[in-house]
Design a protein around this nucleic acid. Structure first.
Lengths: 213, 213
DNA sequence: GTTATTGGGTAGTGGCACTATCTATGTTAG
DNA sequence: CTAACATAGATAGTGCCACTACCCAATAAC
């Protein structure tokens, strides 16, 4: 198919597709002539993925490029891929494993849970920064509380991994890993919000005379 | 204190503080003269909160304004506050409760769980859009899977609500609700990533001969 | 052969989050 | 009292980002 067909099927303007091609989010089509190139299903699929990462998850174009680059480079190492893909989200690049605020707390948590994660995992820094920020706002998160959340995260991760395994093709599996981990994030946050609203309603109903005047 | 003191204590440039004042993220100081205003601890606290919402959570300035507006307007209705604050995050404004993609699936989930959430909760739309996007990428989320995630979200929400209750002052409680729900989001996602990495390592170790050549 | 489309490149647009500057006023040290 | 400095409030400018519009030579389809 040509670019206009790709545009029609995906709903993305041709100008934007060209932009993505320039930025390297989309591999170039097979050139059949100086002003003609041929695209196929993989381009369409990739384009939809790009749109979802940018639109649904809210990644920047450059972060999307990072993620897709990691996808291509580490298709054969499922575990490493996962780490890279997941780590690439905050996209801080010049990660200094030392300058993290609450590194000690994060280390303590990981040790307590017996988790096996790379000392370079960017999620460590993301977690540390958030904890630091919460503390500076007067809401420190005690290890016990964090641990309780982590236990639930562990079970969520188990669900995630269950879903990823299932295909043989490593490329497809890598793409599924990406889609299911990154694109599920908004869904999980939405579920939490809905659950909070429900829980709040439930508790208010159970004890209507809480403390108002 | 004057603006320079506020700037020094918060680390935010005075020009940016003025910008936040203009945008209504920060209430004006008590004017003592035509070119002088007095700020206090509440301004400092609010400024730190604004910075955390923008910097840590990644909210836009306008979304932050929405959230803080909801905070001020519904301090006395704890439950409503929670709904608004949480809903304000996607900030889509002209919410049409009908135009949501996977509304039926979301409704089915909520019904199955017996959750009590407003039909206008923006998280419904956020969830629906994400599910739709996942489906269009060939990764539909079956109700059973969604339900499993939701059960974990429910327990996470219970932890959240446990933490929010504890103060008497409704304003303080509302602020805590905001901080703990919104600012915990990056932490929860980071925990999930760490847990995924750990789970991936664990499973790879348990079955090292998976399928490579 | 003519007309529409395409690839590839360059330049422009609009939005966002600041940031710099200006002026009239105000404070304060000497 | 005065001179140096700070401030409020306003306006304009900056840099980045995600597109978007335009142009041109080269095809492709008819």
């Amino acid at each position: 198919m040509r670019i206009s067909e790709l545009s029609r099927l995906s709903g993305v303007p041709t100008a934007t597709i060209k932009y993505y091609l320039r930025e390297g989010l989309l591999p170039p089509g097979r050139a059949t002539a100086a002003t003609q190139a041929e695209y196929d299903e993989t381009h369409l699929r990739r384009l939809r993925l790009v749109r979802a990462l940018i639109g649904v998850r809210g990644l920047s174009v450059s972060a999307t490029k990072e993620v897709l680059g990691a996808l291509a480079a580490h298709v054969d190492d499922r575990h490493l891929l996962l780490g890279l893909v997941l780590g690439a989200i905050p996209a801080d690049e010049n990660a200094q494993p030392a300058a993290v605020p609450c590194a000690a707390e994060v280390d303590a948590l990981i040790a307590e849970l017996g988790w096996e994660v790379s000392p370079y995992a960017p999620a460590r820094a993301a977690l540390g920064e958030t904890l630091e920020s919460l503390r500076s706002l007067g809401e420190p998160v005690p290890l016990a509380t964090l641990s309780a959340y982590a236990a639930l995260a562990e079970r969520t991760a188990a669900l995630d991994l269950d879903r990823i395994s299932g295909t043989d093709d490593p490329l497809e599996q890598a793409e599924r890993a990406l889609v299911l981990t990154v694109l599920m994030e908004p869904a999980l946050l939405a579920l939490r919000r809905l659950a909070q609203e429900n829980e709040s309603a439930r508790r208010n109903a159970a004890a209507p005379e809480g403390g108002p005047a």
